[in-house]
């Protein structure tokens, strides 16, 4: 009987001092999920529900009719031009901003972000003011029979504008945190500029770059306001997918509108999934400089 160890002081049943009581936790989780359900989950679910409500046949017909197919093609074309151009821009801007010290750098970074803070409608309008019939270059373009506004080039330009910052703003903080030691070591060892970029910098930034490309692509394919101003809404010719959704919706063809919208919602979900994968990759392998290892 003597050998019985004294029980350790019991850990009190109540929570640790820096945790909330269980009912508070449950209440807060419930409240947060209720808010997200009303404003996030239900809108997402309703897109697919409304799309499939009239049945699978209506759905397939809506996304395979010629106008829908041509909208898909135009959306892919605009993204296929805008994303690579902004990729080159983003890398060049990040290289200039993060590898060198020069005056006016903060201003440059602010200017790169500018398209994010401008209303999409204004983004489209400014191109009309330059290339439209009443615009600066309008008369000259009309004389030479070149159409930019209410035509594909205008859509590409508007898409370019709204997606300018995406890749640059992912790369700048990343490359800032990586410093310039590795590149400088490569210079000492005799590498030229392109060798440095492709062998040293690119492998270091590949996930950040991919992340920026994913976000840039999502916006390029989904842009509505800016593209709407410059498109002219010509069916089968200057309609992107989001504009096609609008036309169908305004014609009270709801099932078809939601069917086409569901393609864009699917694209958004794929974007989020890729984003989560890239984020977990960068978290698993924290950026390390080879020199320190």
């Amino acid at each position: 009987m003597t050998a019985i160890a004294l029980p350790l002081p019991a850990i009190p049943a109540r929570t640790r001092p820096i945790e909330e009581a269980a009912w508070v936790r449950r209440f807060l989780i419930g409240l947060a999920l209720a808010f997200l359900t009303l404003f996030l989950f239900l809108p997402l679910i309703s897109v697919f529900y409304e799309a499939l409500r009239k049945g699978w046949d209506v759905y397939i017909a809506a996304i395979t009719e010629p106008d829908a197919v041509s909208a898909i093609q135009l959306t892919l074309t605009a993204a296929a031009i805008a994303v690579p151009l902004n990729l080159v821009f983003g890398v060049a801007a990040a290289w200039a901003v993060t590898k060198f010290e020069f005056r006016g750098k903060n201003l440059l970074v602010t200017l790169i972000d500018l398209p994010f803070s401008i209303s999409p409608v204004v983004s489209g309008l400014i191109y009309v003011l330059i290339f439209g019939l009443q615009g600066w270059l309008g008369p000259w373009l009309a004389e030479h029979d070149i159409r930019i506004i209410f035509a594909v080039p205008g859509i590409v330009l508007a898409t370019l504008f709204v997606t300018v910052p995406f890749i640059a703003r992912e790369l700048i903080p990343l490359m800032q945190s990586q410093g310039t030691e590795e590149e400088e070591a490569a210079v000492v060892l005799g590498a030229n500029g392109w060798q440095i970029f492709f062998r040293i910098t690119l492998p270091n930034i590949k996930w950040g770059l991919l992340y920026g490309v994913i976000l840039c692509n999502a916006r390029a394919m989904g842009e509505f306001g800016a593209v709407s101003v410059v498109s002219g809404h010509i069916r089968g010719s200057t309609n992107t997918l989001p504009l096609h959704v609008e036309i169908l919706y305004n014609e009270y063809n709801f099932a078809a509108a939601f069917a086409v919208a569901s393609l864009l919602a699917l694209l958004a979900l794929i974007t989020l999934a890729l984003k989560a994968i890239v984020e977990s990759k960068t978290r698993e392998k924290p950026v390390t400089t080879g020199i320190q290892e």
């Binding site: 996030l40 309703s46 999502a218 509505f224 306001g225 509108a257 989020l272």
Partner: peptide, 24 residues
Amino acid sequence: LVDALVDLPFALPTAVAGIALTAL
């Protein structure tokens, strides 16, 4: 999943959000 879906408004085209919210 919830954490990933919080970014949905960044990724979902605004026109899609508009018609979905209207329907709801």
